[in-house]
């Protein structure tokens, strides 16, 4: 493989050839492969693509003008802003804390490590309404800690932090375990301090996993319902998140309005995913 590609290289000093080669077997689908592809496409269409298309269509069912007024209605706009802003903030905190927790879990030995491993997954396994209940009991009006966050935006932030905790930790952990420790030793013997090793060797290699975990965190955050609903008190224009606002619209029989807000959430999620993928590539190239 190397030999054949070497033959095509002009002996220039810094050519900009990108080495993109299809994996062996790509483009030659056997009968089994064709069946698999067909099934996967059908499955994804039925479960994801068709329902999403239906939502988008529904949101425009009364014309673009109605779509626009549904989305820019004060309560919708406030809910969307609160949801997206808090989710971005939560994802940012997850990047730092998730990476840190993964680092501690992989690199450090301490008593209770196994227990912590299980605890990390709890927010994931717990029904979110139970999480909401726990948060209400701890930080509600009867807080044993005397911290009352009920009916505040901080409650939304806290609830989202709680449910998104595992994502970055769980995506970074396996990559960190597999990370070639020799690379770090090589960098150290070349004179790199611990910080430089982390910044220039470890972090770029974790970046794809961090980005993937952040995308999951963000997606989870903008769609969260159960955990936020109890403690935040769900006050329109103040602490109501988009998913609750959508549910309210449906209850008042405004399906098109609900679909419009849903479409905005959908597009936002898509944009964030694309942005993270691009960021990941850029980080990879820059090192």
């Amino acid at each position: 493989m190397t030999r054949s590609s070497a033959a095509t290289v002009a002996p220039g000093r810094r050519h900009r050839t990108r080495w993109i080669r299809p994996a062996p077997g790509v483009g030659r689908l056997g009968r089994g492969g064709a069946l698999g592809l067909g099934l996967a496409t059908l499955w994804l269409s039925l479960l994801v693509l068709i329902p999403l298309a239906a939502v988008v269509l529904k949101s425009f069912s009364h014309g673009a003008g109605n779509f626009w007024s549904a989305v820019t209605a004060p309560d919708a706009l406030a809910a969307l802003r609160l949801t997206v802003e808090t989710s971005l903030l939560v994802s940012l905190v997850d990047v730092v804390m998730g990476t840190l927790v993964a680092w501690v879990l992989v690199r450090d030995e301490f008593v209770g490590k196994r227990i912590l491993e299980v605890v990390i997954d709890l927010p994931f396994a717990l029904p979110t309404i139970v999480a909401g209940l726990v948060l209400l009991a701890l930080y509600g009006p009867q807080s044993p800690l005397h911290v009352n966050l009920a009916q505040s935006r901080a409650a939304v932030f806290l609830a989202l932090l709680f449910v998104t905790l595992p994502f970055v930790v769980r995506t970074v952990e396996p990559v960190l375990i597999e990370l070639d420790h020799d690379m770090e030793e090589a960098a150290a013997s070349l004179g790199a301090s611990r910080f430089v090793v982390f910044r220039r060797i470890v972090l770029p290699n974790l970046a794809p996993a961090i980005a993937a975990g952040t995308a999951l965190s963000f997606a989870r955050a903008i769609s969260e319902y159960g955990a936020t609903v109890l403690l935040s008190g769900n006050i329109p224009l103040k602490t109501q998140v988009a998913s609750v606002q959508i549910a309210g619209q449906i209850e008042s029989d405004n399906t098109a309005g609900a679909a419009a807000v849903a479409t905005v959430l959908l597009v936002t999620a898509l944009l964030v995913m694309i942005a993270l993928t691009l960021l990941q590539r850029w980080a990879r190239r820059r090192g």
Partner: peptide, 8 residues
């Protein structure tokens, strides 16, 4: 095992 910096 070379310890190449894979991302560079």
């Amino acid at each position: 095992h070379y310890a190449a910096f894979k991302h560079l």
